[in-house]
Amino acid sequence: MTAASNEAVDFVNMMLRSIPHADALGMTLVEIGDGSAVAKIAYAEHLIGNPDTGVVHGGVITSLLDNTAGLAVQARLQSLGGIATLDLRIDYMKPAVAGEDIYAFVECYRATSSIAFVRGVAYHTDRADPIAAVAGAFMLGTNTVRKPVN
């Protein structure tokens, strides 16, 4: 990564610390691109959904994918303007492994003047072998003035 992108990652991580629930889940940004983001949540016991297996709850994956998708949209728009999730579809491909950190890669592959479309995956180490896949849409310009979209 270049120095400039490291700076962007630090900036977004500072921003994530100011989002109470992202902070509570220990969400951190790993990488940010023109219209994509990689973020992670470290495994923790309070995130477990099934104590028999130690696997994290689906809601943790939903939070990670939703937040990472939002960052991908903002990265594409080059703006921190207000956005709101319209919908998310999450397909659970296989159970997460107990004790392992969870990563999300989400790209914003299309944006109109009012809507952005995202798709991505949650995974441990290999994006080609995902725990879950996501597709969703975001409403743009929900609470502040936004720069025009290309």
Partner: peptide, 24 residues
Amino acid sequence: QPHLVGNVGLQALHGGVVGGFLET
């Protein structure tokens, strides 16, 4: 609870919290 907030300005619940709640 305060740790469920996803947008401080709007004091709105995080989308993942709402999703996790509905899944439960």
